[in-house]
């Protein structure tokens, strides 16, 4: 699990290179040379190797692919979003028209917009399912509490992405839905009116509102999401992915633990392996309770 190239590693490598007399294909040779070149200049290769070849529990489940799926959808949203931004004009006078152009005129524009729109729904669903699997597996428990906290913030930010993106279309449905959402925010006590003013860029819905939502949707929230995903993934790699609580190995270990505890309890009975007391005598000890042994 070493994360740094020690002098030892360096020596090993030279020794291996010197000893290696077997036939080496040109591809292997080129790969080795490239890795060597990159590693000398970045010192990153051992980390990457550790990351890729670290051991994970044997019986991982298909449900544990949902986090990665959320990541891929986020990447898809980023790419399609960048393409849309090349044609979108964030101004109340031109926004709607530029959406029409994207949908009807730009080559594949309808597809990119469609992927971005359906991708938003897919991301909400997948992130929610991922959270569900983490919950039911109990994977948020020690030592992964902070992984959960970053994840929960990611869920909230994902919802904010959905909210801010909806307005950019600038059609009646999106406009009035956002008016209502902001009005609802404004009706919250204490901070509500201020947050609403920040969202609207003033006391009323106006041209600046669109710019504000555009910047939130394009810069602020994606930046926050990318940062949090970075922390989330770092923690996951560091702590290792958890083992499903129903895995055969775990159940067997638990069963053996239980057996051992019961055996130990039996040994301690005054009558050894025959816990049937002779008539008239009572066992001296209290019966052993389930939490007596602990899981240690």
């Amino acid at each position: 699990m070493s994360t740094e190239a020690t002098p030892q590693d360096q020596e090993d490598r030279t020794a291996r290179a010197a000893k290696d007399i077997g036939p080496t294909g040109p591809i292997t040779k080129a790969t080795d040379m490239t890795l060597e070149y990159v590693d000398e200049r970045t010192k990153v290769v051992p980390d990457v190797k550790w990351m890729m070849f670290r051991k994970i529990p044997k019986e991982t489940s298909w449900f544990q692919t949902l986090g990665f799926t959320a990541l891929v959808i986020f990447a898809m949203q980023a790419v399609t979003g960048i393409v849309l931004a090349m044609f979108y004009k964030p101004d109340p006078a031109t926004a709607f028209n530029s959406i029409e152009v994207i949908t009807d005129e730009v080559t594949w524009g309808w597809l990119v917009r469609g992927m971005h729109k359906w991708g938003a729904s897919a991301m909400v669903i997948v992130v929610f399912l991922h959270m569900g699997r983490v919950f039911f597996f109990g994977s948020y428990k020690y030592p992964r509490e902070l992984t959960w906290v970053t994840g929960a913030l990611l869920l909230v930010l994902t919802m904010f992405m959905a909210l801010t993106g909806y307005l950019l279309i600038w059609d009646q449905k999106a406009y009035w839905a956002t008016v209502v959402a902001v009005n609802i925010t404004a009706s919250a006590p204490i901070l509500g009116p201020y947050v609403a003013d920040i969202l609207r860029a003033g006391p009323e819905f106006g041209p600046n509102t669109l710019s504000r939502f555009y910047s939130l949707h394009m810069l602020v929230i994606p930046g926050a999401i990318a940062t949090l995903i970075g922390i989330h993934l770092y923690l996951i790699a560091r702590l290792g992915i958890s083992e499903p609580p129903y895995s055969k190995r775990l159940m067997k270990a638990r069963r053996e633990e239980e057996d051992a505890r019961r055996r130990a309890a039996r040994e301690q009975l005054p009558h050894g392996r025959k816990p049937v007391p002779a008539p008239g005598t009572t066992p001296q000890r209290e019966p052993v309770t389930a939490d007596g042994g602990g899981s240690s």
């Binding site: 990351m51 670290r54 994970i56 529990p57 044997k58």
Partner: peptide, 9 residues
């Protein structure tokens, strides 16, 4: 223990 008989990522 779970990682000992685990498999690579």
């Amino acid at each position: 223990a779970s990682k000992k008989d685990g498999k690579p990522f």
